[in-house]
């Protein structure tokens, strides 16, 4: 009951934001934790669909390599390829990402982390810096994860602007391989929510595969109808 109260309050808070973000709002919901020896190769994919919508048939793919640089910090490097029209698929940008774990898991009522990202768009010669708070709280068998992000874009032909993004995931830790979730996203011209799941499979003591996916549906008329996101990570 208490968890429902928290969840309802935070969802109302998220949807009340006058959010501003015109980039890819749907993306991974980051947990605020860093493993001291973590190292992984990750692939992410995003596909959007709505006939007559300007972003119809958009495909974005991300390939990255990440590793811990200390017990609390992890770095990751990504290449991002995008497509809007069938014949314009290309490597669009590269990105460097730093996650920092502010508190130990369970130390306080909420667990806290920080995210810093720098992305350079090759085609438009523009840049984007993202920073924000990563938060998580455990409710017995469920976990609530929230990302509140500030995004600043500049350079190229784009207008310099400051944007905000909000991501939320409420996850039921049913089995290691199957953890169903509800995800909510908010940004400029985007308000969406939908079901998702994540899971993990261990191959050996030091090698495992993690996956997650979600289908996000529009909550208003500005938002593209359907967004599918998928991520898979090989940790070693």
């Amino acid at each position: 009951m208490r968890s429902l109260f928290w969840l309802a309050g935070i969802v109302l808070l998220a949807l009340s934001f006058t959010a501003l973000a015109d980039g890819r709002v749907v993306d991974k919901v980051y947990h605020p934790y860093v493993g001291a020896l973590e190292r992984d190769v990750e692939y992410r994919s995003l596909y959007q669909r709505q006939s007559q919508h300007p972003d119809n048939n958009t495909l974005a793919q991300k390939l990255g390599y990440g590793f811990a640089v200390s017990e609390r910090a992890a770095l990751a490097f990504y290449l991002l390829a995008e497509r809007v029209m069938p014949d314009d698929y290309t490597v669009a940008s590269y990105e460097v990402e730093l996650r920092y774990m502010l508190t130990e898991q369970g130390q306080y009522n909420w667990d806290w982390g920080l995210l810093f990202e720098y992305e350079h768009q090759q085609q438009t010669n523009s840049n984007e810096i993202t920073t924000g708070l990563l938060m998580e709280k455990e409710f017995t068998h469920t976990s609530l994860t929230i990302n509140t992000l500030l995004v600043y874009e500049w350079g190229g032909n784009i207008k310099n602007e400051l944007e905000t993004e909000f991501r939320l995931q409420y996850r039921y830790r049913y089995l290691p391989a199957l953890q169903p979730s509800i995800e909510i996203y908010s940004g400029e011209n985007y308000k969406g929510a939908g079901p998702g799941f994540m899971g993990v499979h261990k191959f050996s003591p030091t090698r495992q595969l993690k996956w997650e996916a979600a289908m996000v549906f529009a909550l208003d008329n500005d938002t593209i109808d359907r967004t599918l996101r998928f991520a898979i990570s090989y940790q070693f």
Binding site: L13, S16, Y108
Partner: peptide, 19 residues
């Protein structure tokens, strides 16, 4: 929006409660 901000501050303060 005022209610949302108050709620956010309560959330932030409460999240660092120690025992």
């Amino acid at each position: 929006m005022r209610v949302s901000r108050q709620y956010l501050w309560l959330l932030l303060l409460g999240s660092f409660a120690l025992s």
